[in-house]
């Protein structure tokens, strides 16, 4: 597929340009639609959406309850929905239980709240190993969990998407919801990191 008769693999950048030209010149794709998709996922949709969900759950107990009961609906309250977010389940990390998310079969990821997945999430090593030795994998990624913490790994094999509600760090009681948003990281919302206090 990436090889030609000569056996040479052509650079993906060049092949991408070729495909764009072939489809555009036949009117099969609209460059405006294409640029719209790029802007949407490079600029508009990203982990900031998820951080707003988490910060609201940390500061509004009633919202937190709704979020854990029906993630999709509670997330939609903040205006976030769309492809790869048809049914989002939110799970809460605590001092004794830790959730971490993967897609072993491709790289399914909750786009409306986290945007497109980071490179480590798509990496074969993560996809292959986190379902077999999560504690070791998390440790390699800089998260050492105590032995008594119960780990649950969620493999996203259907259209269900998972979002982790991380623990609110100690010492942040005085911060506003807006200030908390800036603390929440993408990695904590997948479950490979904790949120650190400022």
């Amino acid at each position: 597929m990436t090889t030609t008769g000569s056996g040479e693999r052509l650079p993906p950048a060049l092949r991408t340009e070729a495909l764009e030209q072939l489809l555009t010149e036949r009117g099969l794709i609209d460059p405006k639609v294409m640029n719209g998709i790029i802007t949407e996922y490079e600029t508009n949709v990203g982990p900031l959406n998820g951080a707003k969900v988490v910060a609201k759950a940390w500061t509004d107990p009633e919202y937190r309850r709704r979020l854990l009961q029906d993630g999709t609906a509670a997330i939609k309250e903040l205006g976030f929905s769309g492809p790869q977010g048809e049914h989002i389940v939110v799970v809460e990390n605590t001092p004794t239980t830790h959730h971490v998310v993967v897609c072993t079969l491709c790289s399914c990821y909750p786009w409306p709240v986290l945007g497109l997945p980071p490179s480590w999430y798509k990496d074969p090593a993560y996809r292959a190993r986190v379902v077999k030795e999560p504690r070791t994998v998390l440790s390699e990624m800089g998260l050492d969990l105590d032995d008594d913490v119960q780990i649950t790994v969620h493999d996203s094999t259907s259209e269900v998407r998972w979002l982790v509600l991380p623990e609110r760090p100690a010492g942040t009681e005085h911060l506003t919801e807006e200030e908390l948003v800036s603390l929440v990281t993408r990695d904590a919302m997948v479950g490979v990191a904790k949120v650190a206090a400022p």
């Binding site: 079969l105 480590w120 090593a125 292959a128 077999k132 993408r186 490979v192």
Partner: peptide, 15 residues
């Protein structure tokens, strides 16, 4: 890929 061997260490996240 779940459980398949031979991929080496995972990549550390970059914020």
């Amino acid at each position: 890929m779940g459980g398949t061997p031979g991929w080496g260490p995972v990549h550390s996240p970059r914020r």
